[in-house]
Computed example of a mutant assay.
Amino acid sequence: MTTRILTVGAPALLVGVSVGALLAQAPATPPSLPTPPSLPYFVGNALGLPIEPTTPGPFAPMSPQVKVYGAIYSAESCAYDPSRNLIIVPNRGVPQNVQQNNAWVSLLNHDGSVHTARWIGVQNAGAPRAALTPPLVLNEPYGSDVANGTLYLADRDGSTSPQDKGVAVIRRFTLATGAPAGETRVPAVEWFNDIAVAADGTVYGTVTGGATDADAATWQVWRIPAQGEASIVVQGAPLKRPNGIAIDGDGNLVVVNMLSPDVLTLSPAGRLLKTAQAAQAGNDGIVILRDGTTYVSSVLNGGVSRLRPGQPATLIAQNIPNAASMCYDAGAHQLVIPMNANNALAFVPLDPK
Rank of each mutant, 00 (worst) to 15 (best):
A103M: 08
A103R: 12
L107H: 05
H110E: 14
S113D: 11
H115I: 02
T116R: 12
R118C: 03
G121R: 06
V122A: 15
R129K: 13
A131H: 03
L132P: 02
P134W: 11
V137G: 05
V137S: 15
L138Y: 09
P141R: 13
Y142Q: 14
G143E: 11
G143S: 06
D145W: 11
N148C: 00
G149C: 07
G149M: 09
G149K: 07
L151C: 03
L151Y: 03
L151A: 08
L153F: 08
A154D: 07
R156E: 13
R156G: 07
G158T: 08
S159W: 09
S161Y: 09
S161E: 12
S161V: 11
Q163Y: 13
G166C: 08
A168P: 02
V169L: 10
R171H: 05
R172G: 01
T174S: 10
T174D: 15
L175K: 08
A176N: 07
G178E: 13
A179P: 00
A179I: 10
A181Y: 03
G182T: 05
G182I: 12
R185A: 15
V186I: 15
A188R: 10
V189N: 06
F192L: 07
F192N: 08
I195Q: 11
I195L: 13
A196C: 01
A198F: 01
Y204Q: 04
T206E: 11
T208E: 12
G209K: 06
T212I: 04
A214M: 01
D215M: 02
A216E: 09
A217G: 04
T218C: 02
Q220G: 02
V221T: 00
V221P: 00
W222S: 02
R223M: 04
I224A: 04
P225H: 08
E229Y: 00
A230G: 11
S231W: 00
